[in-house]
Design a protein around this nucleic acid. Sequence first.
DNA 1: TATATAAGTCTCAAAAAGAGACCAGCACTA
DNA 2: TAGTGCTGGTCTCTTTTTGAGACTTATATA
Lengths: 136, 136
Amino acid sequence: MDSKVVSLKSKLEIYKACSGGGNLADCPVRDVIQGISNKWSSLLMMALAEKPYRFGELRRLVPDISQRMLTQTLHDLQRDGYVHREVFPTKPPSVEYSLTDLGRSMFGPLHQLLQWAELNHGAVRAARNAFDAAET
Amino acid sequence: MDSKVVSLKSKLEIYKACSGGGNLADCPVRDVIQGISNKWSSLLMMALAEKPYRFGELRRLVPDISQRMLTQTLHDLQRDGYVHREVFPTKPPSVEYSLTDLGRSMFGPLHQLLQWAELNHGAVRAARNAFDAAET
DNA sequence: TATATAAGTCTCAAAAAGAGACCAGCACTA
DNA sequence: TAGTGCTGGTCTCTTTTTGAGACTTATATA
């Protein structure tokens, strides 16, 4: 009944929210953004933007990531085409991770956001403190 | 023993990874980025950048968010100072959410990233397909 | 022989997210 | 006057995701 009305209405509005065509399921922005908006992706992109790193180096660089999440996040970044994984036949074999062209391209705007974060973390922290103080 | 060596070494490297001083716990970039790099934040920022919305409107705009996560994400965005929450004494009372100056400031670089996503989702999708095909 | 290192995988516990019922106050309707 | 719907949530329960830590396989080193 009115579920049809709602779905029609929201479809138009989602069109705007996704600032592109298509429906919710394959909204381009959501599809791409959800791949990088998680706890570890931007941190690893930041590290790899500097230079290629090996698995163990990344683990030491980000000591509070679990091995499992490092494996998985790198795998996901590789799947989306941001990261290249190369195995070297040393003994024991070593694996190097580096940014692809697509990865470097994406890091451009990401870097802007990271810089904003660095510049404005004082304001965010202040807002947080004010909010927490007001809650009591 | 060598845990001391490791912690010294990683501290230096984290310094670079965080592109700012301080230790891991209060790394500015991580602190700010982790607040916005989750499933719903950027989507809601995108919606509110267009115009203020009420709770129910946002719910209809993003039909696949649960009421619980909408409440929580808006609360978190408000706590970090990106979003302003205003209650109007209508009957029943309505609540409007809008971006603050800090929110609009942050949306600048975020928007760049969203535009990149829109422009390059084809490349990402292609990489994903290639990766999945190669896996078999 | 014992230990370390490489890059992971596996299992289990804890945390986070999603689904859906429920709430209070008021307006409209039958 | 009882029923229905609207508002913006909260509460509880289940499922998914994440984290902690042991285990792996092959080689090198002490």
